[in-house]
Structures are given as structure tokens and as C-alpha cells.
């Protein structure tokens, strides 16, 4: 084997070793663990079984949490799309300098820790928070509403945390559209509205799809925001897994829950890839 053939492997050796030791091995180990049994008095017991998975999939309580996670992920994705598309479109129509500042405004929050940003929503939605202060002082309600620890609060928080990704993804797709296409549409008789619906929107769909995938996978697997805004009362999959492992020490079951969640994420990726390859607008993605 000559140097040229060996060189790439020499370069990747160290990072590859790190990944095998700290990424692949722990995941394989966790998966193996999910096939073990747990006994409250003895601890983890050997012997392969799919018991943990059947327990999860057969229990309406746990399935309810799975559906909730899915629901929250879908709602946060839709909300990001509804808020993010107009924002990205507006940004793209601004002059380059204004666009740079607006992009900064969208990007800057990414530098603030998710904990801090979710905490901000605690303050806004809390009993003494902004929303309740406004509602009470304007006389709409007499007593503060319970806004925290609800699915709605989680959706709001997740939408906020991941909106930037949706905006960036759509803005990138919009920026890739050749401006001559818009002129061509107008030149052929399309109004501004028709140009948007027949040219801009279809051509921005790859950005919408990519942004939706990002927001859905991140928000359905998010942990911090649901833990803070939903708490133990409104559990999602990631919280459930955390609770089972770290708080209740039922590692095999917690591991199984983690892999069900992983399956959900993988499912979303597969759906995305299907959309990418087929469908009416498949040609846009190629």
C-alpha cells in the first residue's frame, strides 16, 4: 500500500478512534442494555429480551407520552414554519445591508444557552410574568392563568429555540432562486402574487423541507426546554428517559425509551428522504 492510499486513514485515525470509543461503543452498549431486564432489588439482570419495548408499546400511559412528543414536535415545526417563512421572505426582499442586520438578529440568540432562553419563557409565562401581568392589569382575567407546565408552553419555547434554523434554511433556499426567474414570470404576465405562488414558493420547498426536518427532529428530541416549561407534569420522551435512568435507575427501560425516541427521529429522516426523492416537486430537490 502506497502513501497516497494510506494518507487519508492516517488523518482520520485519531478522530475515528474518538468516535468509535465515545460514540459508537456507548450507543451499542446502550442498545444492548435496552435488551436486558431490570429487577428493583437486584438491579440489571442479563439475558436478552424485548420486554422493555413491549412494555412501552403496550402501555397507554407511555404511548400517550410518545404521541405527545410527536404532537409537540409537529406543532413546533408548524409554528416555526408559519413564523419563519414570512420572516425569511421579508429578509430576502430587504437591501443587502438591512438583510445582514436582520440575519444577525435571527442568529444572535443562538449564542445564548438554551437554558437561559427557556428560562426567559418561565419568566414570561409564569404567574407573575409578562403575559399574566398584562392580562390581570387590563382586567381580562382576575387571577393569573396557569400557562407554565403545559404543552402549549413547551411548543412556544421550542418554537423560539429552533425558529432560527427554520429561517436560515428557508432564507438559504430563497437566496438560491435566480432573480431572473422572478423577472421572467412577471414578463410572462404573472402578478407579484402569482409569481410568489407559482415560482418562489415551489422553488423554496427544499428549504422548507430541510428546515422542517431540523426543527422536528430537534424539538421532538429536545430535553431542556420541555423539562423546564413542562416539568414532570407534562413529560416528553426525552424527559421520560432521563427520569427512568437517572432518577429511577431503571437503566434498561430508560435505554429502550431512548431507542424508541431515536426511532421517531429516524422515521422523520426517512420521511424527509422520501419527500426528497419523489412527489410532485421532486424535480426541485434534485
Amino acid at each position: 500500500m502506497n502513501v497516497r492510499r494510506l494518507a487519508p486513514w492516517l488523518l482520520v485515525a485519531a478522530p475515528l478512534a474518538v468516535f468509535v470509543a465515545l460514540f459508537l461503543a456507548p450507543l451499542v452498549n446502550l442498545f444492548a442494555l435496552s435488551l436486558f431486564r431490570f429487577d428493583r432489588s437486584v438491579g440489571v439482570v442479563g439475558g436478552l429480551t424485548v420486554e422493555n419495548y413491549t412494555k412501552f408499546l403496550g402501555d397507554p400511559f407511555y404511548l400517550g407520552i410518545l404521541w405527545r412528543t410527536l404532537r409537540i414536535g409537529v406543532l413546533a415545526t408548524l409554528a416555526s414554519l408559519l413564523l419563519g417563512y414570512p420572516l425569511a421572505y421579508h429578509m430576502q426582499r430587504c437591501r443587502p445591508r438591512a438583510r445582514a442586520y436582520l440575519a444577525l438578529l435571527v442568529l444572535a440568540p443562538l449564542l445564548v444557552s438554551v437554558v437561559v432562553r427557556s428560562f426567559g419563557w418561565l419568566v414570561i409565562l409564569g404567574p407573575n410574568g409578562l403575559v399574566n401581568s398584562l392580562l390581570v392589569s387590563s382586567g381580562i382575567v382576575r387571577d393569573p392563568l396557569r400557562l407554565l407546565y403545559t404543552e402549549g408552553a413547551i411548543v412556544v419555547g421550542l418554537t423560539h429555540v429552533f425558529l432560527s434554523f427554520m429561517v436560515l434554511s428557508i432564507a438559504a433556499a430563497l437566496a438560491r432562486i435566480d432573480p431572473a426567474l422572478l423577472r421572467a414570470a412577471q414578463n410572462l404576465g404573472a402578478t407579484e402574487r402569482q409569481t410568489f405562488f407559482r415560482v418562489v414558493l415551489p422553488l423554496s420547498l427544499p428549504g422548507v423541507a430541510a428546515g422542517s426536518l431540523i426543527v422536528f427532529t430537534l424539538s421532538s428530541s429536545a430535553f431542556i426546554t420541555p423539562a423546564l416549561l413542562g416539568g414532570p407534569r407534562v413529560k416528553v420522551m426525552s424527559y421520560l428517559s432521563y427520569q427512568q435512568t437517572l432518577l429511577l435507575s431503571d437503566w434498561p427501560y430508560g435505554a429502550a425509551i431512548a431507542f424508541v425516541l431515536l426511532g421517531l427521529v429516524a422515521g422523520a429522516v426517512l420521511v424527509y428522504l422520501r419527500v426528497l426523492e419523489s412527489g410532485r416537486y421532486g424535480v426541485v430537490f434534485r
Binding site: 438578529l105 427557556s118 426567559g120 419568566v123 423560539h160
Partner: peptide, 29 residues
């Protein structure tokens, strides 16, 4: 609409900053 979304993006950050200057014993906005 875009201005409102930007407000939404900045709201929690601004709210945390402002409420940190409270003199009270509890967090409020």
C-alpha cells in the same frame, strides 16, 4: 408581521435582562 416575529425572538432575552434588576425577592415581569 416580521417585526412581531423579531419581537418574539428577542422577548425572552430582553425579559430576563430587565427582570434581573428587580428589587423584590421573587422574579416578576
Amino acid at each position: 408581521f416580521s417585526a412581531l416575529v423579531y419581537a418574539f425572538v428577542l422577548a425572552p432575552i430582553v425579559v430576563v435582562l430587565l427582570s434581573s434588576f428587580t428589587a423584590a425577592d421573587y422574579t416578576s415581569f
